Simulated scan of single mutants.
Amino acid sequence: MAPATTNNNNKPVTKSGPVPFKEVDDGSVPDHTPKEEFGELVAALPRKQQSILELRLYQGFWLPEHWVPGTIVFQRRFAPRPDDVILASYPKCGTTWLKALAFAVMARDAHPPAHPDHPLRRLNPHDCIPFIDEIFAGGEDAKLDLLPSPRLMNTHLPFTLLPDPVTNNGGTCRVVYVCRDPKDMAVSLWHFLRRRHPDLPFADTFESVCDGTVPVGPVWDHVLSYWRASQANQDRVLFLKYEDLLRDPAGNVRWLAAFMGRPFLADEEAAVQDVVELCSFEKMKGLEVNKAGTSGAYKAMPRDAFFRKGVAGDWANHMSPEMAARLDGVVREKLQGTGLAFS
């Protein structure tokens, strides 16, 4: 565990992590914005409007424009702690579920998953684990120092855009990545975007996924960045599939816990099942905290938008066989020879 840190009022933070970010963010760290610092650089990048977001092509990926300055700051200034765990995902690929599972696993000593006052019963998973992309975009990165170790953080950035201290072989922090069948991802992304843009045609989102000009895309490059990293360093990068989590949640929870350095002991089988139940789609969707309010700083979204169906194969209700075959073909071609496949 890292030594206690202090906040701007010189008050020590002595709790053992992880703790809910919302409960540590006491407002003592003033916000600032890196937007002006890198304004000229961002303005010179290729631009594309995609649904509700303006995208810029930065180091090979289409990032929401407001993320780019924060990404630069993240790359240059982030100082990982040895026991940090970064949860990574492409949008709409199981991010909320992974956050809930990781928090419940890592915090189970202080917060037994069966306890009626568990943080995940009163806070949205996005309130428990900070979203690095929004934190740095809003100039709130100093707030990460308030978190006791081990810290849990989340990002949608590809592995190649993470800071060197995270990606180089000399680093010690861990990265967990979850991916999903791109067809289900495309459908889930469309439904999510429609909460802000109700008239958005599915065809628009589908075409953006196919040609790579989708937020944080191309999708295949994003997935491959973590796949290759996991193959090169399995001790530091864990690669999960959403569909595998659905098929065997308990087995994957044990695997996740061991990777994060908090393995379940032989007498903790009940705790494994309690984590699975607490973080199940049905349980999370039914909680009052996940039915009202919003999450997200820049484009705040209703919390219930993060809990739609939680299944695999829903793409069949939205795509024609020809559309599905086209997207499968694109992805298959891009993944050829890598050892990774979705279908």
Rank of each mutant, 00 (worst) to 15 (best):
H126V: 01
N233K: 11
V223T: 12
F103W: 09
A186K: 04
V73P: 01
A324D: 10
A258K: 11
D274R: 08
P215C: 10
A250V: 08
G337A: 10
E333G: 15
C128S: 13
R332V: 03
A258G: 09
D304A: 09
A257E: 01
V311C: 12
T14G: 03
W220C: 08
V219W: 15
N252P: 02
E23V: 10
V331S: 05
M1S: 13
Q336D: 14
G261V: 03
Y226I: 04
P263A: 02
P198F: 09
F136M: 01
D184Y: 08
V73C: 06
T14K: 13
L87C: 02
F78N: 08
R195W: 05
N233E: 13
K35W: 12
R326K: 15
G138A: 14
A142M: 11
T6W: 09
L327C: 05
S230T: 05
N317T: 06
K283V: 15
V29G: 06
G139T: 03
L161R: 00
R108Q: 01
N10I: 04
V289K: 12
S28A: 12
M1C: 08
W227S: 03
W315T: 05
E282A: 15
C128I: 13
F136H: 04
P302V: 11
S295C: 12
A104M: 07
L162I: 02
K35A: 15
L189S: 14
A341E: 14
D221P: 00
N154L: 08
D244V: 04
S230R: 05
P119K: 07
P263L: 01
T213I: 05
R196H: 13
A258R: 09
A271L: 13
P46T: 04
A292T: 14
A2Q: 10
G313M: 04
E269R: 12
P34I: 09
L147F: 00
K334Y: 08
P64L: 09
L123C: 04
F136E: 02
R108Y: 05
V276G: 08
I132R: 01
